[in-house]
Amino acid sequence: MTFKAIINGKTLKGETTTEAVDAATAEKVFKQYFNDNGLDGEWTYDDATKTFTVTE
C-alpha cells in the first residue's frame, strides 16, 4: 500500500510517499525520515486517505 506524509515544518514543507504493508510500518519509516531531517511536531493520521500529517 502507498502511504503519504504531508510535512508542515518550519524549515521543510512538502509531501513524500512510502510503500508499506501497514500504517504502523509506514509511520516508522516517516518518523525516521523526519528525525533524520530534524523535524519534530504534532502527528495526525487519516486512515481513509492513508495520509500522515506532521505540523511543526
Rank of each mutant, 00 (worst) to 15 (best):
T51S: 04
T25I: 06
T51D: 00
T44L: 08
T25W: 06
E56G: 06
D22K: 01
D46R: 02
N37E: 08
A24H: 08
D36Q: 13
E27G: 06
T44Y: 10
A48W: 05
N37T: 10
E27Y: 15
K31P: 00
K31H: 05
T11V: 11
E56V: 14
D40R: 12
T2N: 06
E27W: 14
K31W: 05
I6C: 08
E15N: 06
V54H: 03
A48M: 11
I6Y: 07
A5W: 10
K4G: 03
A24T: 08
A48L: 11
T2S: 08
T51E: 02
V29Q: 12
G9V: 13
K28I: 10
K13M: 11
T51A: 03
N35V: 13
E56A: 10
T51M: 03
L12F: 14
T49K: 06
D46P: 01
N37R: 15
A26N: 00
K13N: 09
T18W: 12
G14Y: 15
L39C: 08
D36R: 11
I7S: 04
T18D: 01
K28Y: 07
E19Q: 14
A5Y: 07
E15K: 05
W43E: 00
D40K: 13
L39P: 03
T16M: 15
W43V: 07
G41Q: 05
T55N: 08
E42V: 14
K10V: 13
V29C: 13
F34M: 13
E42S: 10
T55E: 07
M1P: 06
N35C: 13
A24R: 08
L39V: 12
N8A: 11
N35I: 13
D46A: 01
A23N: 03
T11R: 08
V21P: 14
L39I: 14
G14Q: 10
T2V: 13
K50C: 06
K13L: 09
T49P: 00
F30A: 00
A24D: 07
F3R: 03
E27Q: 12
D40H: 13
T2G: 04
G41A: 09
V21L: 12
K13I: 10
A20F: 03
I7W: 15
D46W: 02
V21F: 11
F30W: 02
T25K: 04
I7L: 10
K28H: 08
T25D: 06
G41M: 14
